[in-house]
């Protein structure tokens, strides 16, 4: 754990992203994605929506940390909800 200055939170963060990518790969092999248009004003595949979810999660956290004084957990929760909405209906 001391190599590369790992901490458990960052390790979990990257494990989560890695797992998500793995799941997406397996899903893609089993059931190839179909590009479609949902809430977002553009045609997206499953991977696109995942990327957009990650990026919005990043910026929700940036906004939260920049403007709010309350705990960032709520921002994390908000970005999870956004991610679910984007993945399902985006």
């Amino acid at each position: 754990m001391s190599w590369m200055a790992w901490t458990w939170p960052t390790a979990l963060f990257f494990i989560a992203i890695g797992t998500a990518l793995l799941i997406l790969t397996v899903l893609e092999l089993r059931q190839p994605t179909i590009a479609r248009r949902g809430l977002l004003p553009l045609v997206t595949t499953r991977g696109d929506r995942f990327f957009i979810s990650l990026l919005s999660a990043g910026f929700i956290h940036v906004l939260w940390l920049g403007t709010m004084d309350s705990a960032v957990v709520w921002g994390t929760l908000l970005s999870l909800i956004v991610a679910i909405i984007l993945m399902r209906w985006g």
């Binding site: 590369m4 200055a5 939170p9 963060f13």
Partner: peptide, 19 residues
């Protein structure tokens, strides 16, 4: 990933770093 690791810690020297 290393940069992300550093960004959540206060690093004083090789042995002392705090989350």
């Amino acid at each position: 990933m290393t940069v992300v690791n550093y960004s959540v810690q206060d690093i004083l020297d090789f042995n002392s770093r705090f989350f």
